[in-house]
Design a protein around this nucleic acid. Sequence first.
DNA 1: GACAAAATACCGAGTATTCGGTATGTTTTT
DNA 2: AAAAACATACCGAATACTCGGTATTTTGTC
Lengths: 186, 186
Amino acid sequence: MASLPRRKQPQQVRRNLLNAAAEIASEHGLEFVTTAEVAKRAGVTSGGLFHHFPSKKHLIDEMINAFMKSVETCIEDLIKKDPDPRGRFTRAYLVSSYGYDPRSVDNRLLGAIITAMNRDPELAEPWADWMEKQMEKYDQEKDPILASIVRYAADGLWMEIFAASHVDFEKRQAAFQRLMDWTRQL
Amino acid sequence: MASLPRRKQPQQVRRNLLNAAAEIASEHGLEFVTTAEVAKRAGVTSGGLFHHFPSKKHLIDEMINAFMKSVETCIEDLIKKDPDPRGRFTRAYLVSSYGYDPRSVDNRLLGAIITAMNRDPELAEPWADWMEKQMEKYDQEKDPILASIVRYAADGLWMEIFAASHVDFEKRQAAFQRLMDWTRQL
DNA sequence: GACAAAATACCGAGTATTCGGTATGTTTTT
DNA sequence: AAAAACATACCGAATACTCGGTATTTTGTC
């Protein structure tokens, strides 16, 4: 079968570059994302990459923003599907933190991004703004302190997977269950 | 006053090198720790550094181990000074997580190290072993699940400082207080 | 204690490699 | 023909690490 002449799809190449960057960051960490490797995985040369992005920073920033957006929509979906209005946001936040598979691409990528946030605080701002907006919308809870504790614990649950070498999954599950129960009485 | 001829103090130079590495890591992140800069800050040339350490990795690993040891002794001191035997370990863990000043050298260094743990899991093992040992010693609590939740929340409290751009310190303080109360009834 | 010998501590100029980025072509689409 | 979408060939700076040499300290011997 004679293949049709391949038409160039620049926007697809662009997406490929962003995906390649995310892939490398999740596999080995943000520091291993080099322009040469990203270009190679996207089936393009270095020159091609710099045709689509004026600098490496632009590429990375756009990749991070795209991922954060996907996390946001994930949480928003969980909220929409939740029949119980009490503590919806906090519960969705908890589920999304706990649900991550330690080896998953997303979890490792999120780790790389949070790391980058520490170095570059302006990266954290869109996320903080979104959080604040969600809080205003949903945080009309009876016990906002308990809600914040649940969210702190959710972060801890996530970090355990991110940084710990071996984990007691039974205890972890039990802690998650109790936290979930707490969100019902918010 | 004529200064005495300066005697060489190799072990002091060694410490200076380790301190310089920690300093740079806490100021700008582990990725900015270069052998040249470390040597410069320690008042030594690159060659001098590699006389004391066979590779950069050896230098970094030793620096990390030293810092982890200091955190361990900090927690152990808190335990010793605590008159209430109930939930001692969990309380000390919580205090040490909450107490960190966001801008402090130690907190930023710890961030850099935890980041490195994700990339290099063998770095996390000594810490995990120590944690397990502490758990066996102190975790004879009535409610081990609640204890683990408090510790998860402590990690979350720490991470908020590490990664967030702006923080509600009042709410943070309130959450800390309630967590402290919980440790009294463990 | 004097003194040579050996070991240690350190210097500083390199080396090979990697990386982000550029300048300039060549092909494809419009 | 003009513009967009790439490829090719470089550049300059940075980095971990090496290596030959020198200064300093310690050790062994009388």
